[in-house]
Design a protein around this nucleic acid. Structure first.
Length: 423
RNA sequence: GGCCCCAUCGUCUAGCGGUUAGGAUCCCAGGUUUUCAUCCUGGUUACCGGGGUUCGAGUCCCCGUGGGGUCACCA
């Protein structure tokens, strides 16, 4: 089983989306299930409805899942396991106040050394623990030897007992702390591989230690990806800008690899994506590159489907839109191009009279299925010189002279020609 | 600040002591194909800096510099 874990406290970032996609693809590759886990243990910070929004976005990107799990529903397991650790003297109650801890941290910082819990409450006599009215947290006793594991991206990693530390597993309100809840949930969900971001590296040894303390000996494989830089945009804005979900997914899955067969659907990613190819170097989010990939996906889109993005339900308009993909890389820009054709045009003074003549002819003309016949008719009726005629026609159709030519456009718009020149 | 990670064309990368430093993409030039998509040929552009080790260093070591991470009763 693989999972995508996210807290319902913020929008789905591109980095998170990338992780979700990778976990999903690897689940497909390994023929394992995939679940979404909402990490909602901090009730104060949760944003109403954010969980549903994130799930809907993931669906939009083509991710399918077995289940959406809420971490808060596992509180009873978290407490039970914390109590188990307490009974087995692998954890202890800690009565230190926040102020005391804060002071010790500050001191450690001043002395420029690593802060770790000093163990004040670890050896308290039993009676002092039982009768103590002070609020308390539960801490796991730090390991006695290094915690080591092999990370699929980072290589061999080893953490000292001080780095793992006697960290809090139950907060003072007895909700589980992050590393503990995650470690337990991964165990309960039978997670096999975790792909997450570099910032979670220090969490891994803690979680490994929690599970081994609980006697769970299945090793979870970790892969901590290097960060994605300069992603000064988010998932929702990219979609609003007119980038296709399949293009965004494609881009995020190729980032950090050198896959030259770079255009693929999420289904095809099963073949193309290779976690082992991801290096330790940070990657830059490059919107220009995404645009190029988006163009490829636009061209691969079914004509009729594409036409819906630009406000029509006609395959011909979709095909028409594809003519503009060279300069317009997003559905939003394509829509602008199509709208330009279907709206009233400003004809430059120089061509005003020619255009008016042509317009009149077109409005009275019969229907022509072929561009050649259409243009011959215009030539005959107007007696205009060819170059001038073409320029005026182009102005009438697209409102500009520097885009795609009438010859290419006509086959797709022949049914709309009178509407377009606004008869 | 302590600890950890990283550094090759604009971008994504190959390279694991000896290469004219390769590919993809973008860009430019030219050419095929008069449905569209496409496709082909050529061109420009890179080893962060400084010291070592070595016959030889993008590659190994050290020091800088730059970027990133982490150091919660947040997730």
């Amino acid at each position: 089983m693989l999972r995508f874990a996210c807290s319902p406290t913020a929008d789905l970032s591109l980095e998170s989306l990338r992780l979700a996609l990778m976990n999903f693809v690897v689940a497909m590759q390994r023929n394992e299930g995939f679940v979404i886990r909402i990490e909602d243990t901090d009730q104060k910070r949760n944003i109403e409805g954010k969980d549903a929004e994130i799930v809907a976005l993931l669906e939009l990107f083509g991710i399918t899942y077995k289940d959406v799990l809420y971490q808060s529903k596992n509180f009873k397991f978290h407490s039970a396991m914390a109590i188990d650790l307490l009974h087995r003297k692998k954890a202890f109650n800690c009565f230190c106040s926040l102020e005391e801890l804060e002071a010790k941290k500050k001191k450690a910082k001043e002395q420029k050394r690593l802060y770790s819990y000093d163990g004040s409450c670890e050896q308290l006599p039993a009676e002092e623990v039982i009768d103590n009215p002070k609020p308390f947290t539960v801490r796991i006793k730090k390991p006695t030897k290094n915690i080591s594991f092999v990370d699929r991206v980072q290589g061999e990693l080893s953490f000292s007992p001080e780095e793992v530390d006697s960290f809090v597993i139950l907060n003072v309100d007895k909700t589980p702390a992050y590393d503990f809840a995650t470690a337990v949930d991964d165990m309960l969900s039978d997670i096999s591989v975790v792909i997450s971001s570099e910032e979670q590296i220090e969490s891994a040894p803690k979680q490994i230690y929690v599970r081994s303390s609980l006697g769970y000996d299945k090793a979870i494989e970790y892969a901590h990806l290097p960060p994605m830089l300069e992603a000064d945009t988010d998932t929702k804005s990219l979609l609003q800008e007119g980038f296709l979900p399949q293009a965004i997914a494609n881009y995020l899955l190729t980032l950090g690899t050198n896959d030259s067969e770079r255009i693929f659907t999420l289904e095809e990613a099963k073949e193309h994506f290779n976690l082992a190819k991801i290096g330790k170097t940070a990657v830059k989010f490059d919107k220009e590159r995404l645009r190029e990939i988006n163009k490829e996906h636009l061209l691969r889109l079914d004509d009729k489907e594409l036409s819906r993005f630009v406000g029509f339900a006609d395959a011909q308009i979709g095909a028409l839109a594809k003519l503009f993909v060279d300069s317009a890389g997003t559905t939003r820009e394509l829509k602008r191009e199509i709208q330009r054709i279907f709206s009233k045009k400003e004809i430059p003074q120089k061509y005003a009279s020619t255009a008016a003549t042509l317009k009149k002819i077109i409005c009275q003309a019969p229907y022509f299925g072929e561009y050649e016949n259409f243009i011959q008719h215009l030539k005959k009726e107007s007696a205009l010189e060819e170059r001038e005629l073409l320029t005026a026609l182009q102005l009438l159709i697209s409102g500009s002279t520097d885009k795609v030519e009438p010859k290419e456009i006509y086959p797709h718009i022949k049914n709309y020609i009178k509407e377009i020149v606004s008869c």
